[in-house]
Write a protein that binds this DNA or RNA. Structure first.
Length: 259
DNA sequence: ATGGCTTGGGAACCAAGA
């Protein structure tokens, strides 16, 4: 079973590029971020016609997450617990009833810039809430995956130019420490585990010819509970998608689980 | 580089992204 994450930067803007990748990669499940539309505005027919169930957690203009799945989805929940006043659509969960039953959490972690400031405070508070949610889900001792745009560069080798990010919310020590706190609850970071080498990126800015210059960062991640990690067979970053027509600035990251 | 594109909102530019 192949499970992926893809920050598509606007679902309507990706009405051609996303189906093109889906046909080529044939994932069973995809967590999408930055759909940038309300639930009613999501072009679900495009994906239903391709055999996917569609669950969305949208918001007007910004943010928004969704899950596409070839297998039935149960117990869908929307929003990250811990702050009833949080209006931003950045978290969705569902249980995928496929060859394996797995809980999937799709997340769009706040950018946090500029730091310091209220946006950075929100990022750190959001990460603390995520830590609590991960802790709660781990008690199930079931396969759980946390896929999405973490907006965190975990280590210097995850950036082509780490020196350019030292003051940035994506790479500040506090951001990386919060990421490690989540990871160290007992999760496995799929790509780091299966392909531990520098030069693997998931995002290239639209500006300054970042793609052509190889100026990328790795901020989209798949974290897995021990029971999910036990099933891990393969990981991948579909970087060639960045060179396609009208691409997102992110590319898909995926894992393949046994059965 | 005090952001060089891209997106959505909404009708001329502006916020937000990373």
């Amino acid at each position: 079973m192949k499970i992926a994450t893809f920050n598509i930067n606007g679902i309507r803007a990706r009405a051609e590029a996303l189906p093109r990748w889906l046909r080529a990669a044939e994932p069973d499940v995809v967590c999408l971020q930055e759909i940038k539309c309300v639930d009613e505005g999501f072009p679900r027919e495009i994906f239903e016609d391709m055999g996917y169930r569609v669950e969305t957690h949208g918001q007007k203009g910004f943010n928004g997450v969704a899950i596409l799945s070839k297998h039935p989805l149960e117990d869908v929940t929307r929003g990250l617990p811990g702050d009833d006043g949080d209006e931003q659509a950045r978290w969705i969960e569902a249980t995928v009833c496929g060859p394996r039953v797995v809980r999937v959490c799709g997340l769009y972690l706040p950018n946090g810039n500029p730091a310091p400031g209220p946006k950075y405070d929100y990022k750190l508070a959001w990460m603390a809430r995520m830590e609590a949610r991960v802790r709660a889900l781990l008690t199930s001792e079931e396969p759980v995956l946390f896929l999405g745009d973490y907006n965190v560069i975990p280590q210097a080798e995850d950036a082509a130019k780490p020196e350019a990010w030292t003051e940035d919310a994506l790479f500040l020590p506090q951001s990386r420490a919060a990421f490690r706190r989540i990871l160290h609850l007992g999760l496995t970071e799929a790509v780091r585990t299966r392909a531990p080498r520098p030069g693997l990126y998931t995002f290239w800015d639209y500006q300054a010819n970042s793609w052509e210059r190889g100026n990328g960062i790795r901020i989209d991640h798949v974290l897995m509970s021990p029971q999910a990690a036990d099933l891990l067979e393969e990981t991948g970053i579909d970087k060639e998608v960045r060179a396609g027509d009208k691409p997102s600035d992110h590319v898909p990251v995926w894992v393949r689980l046994a059965a």
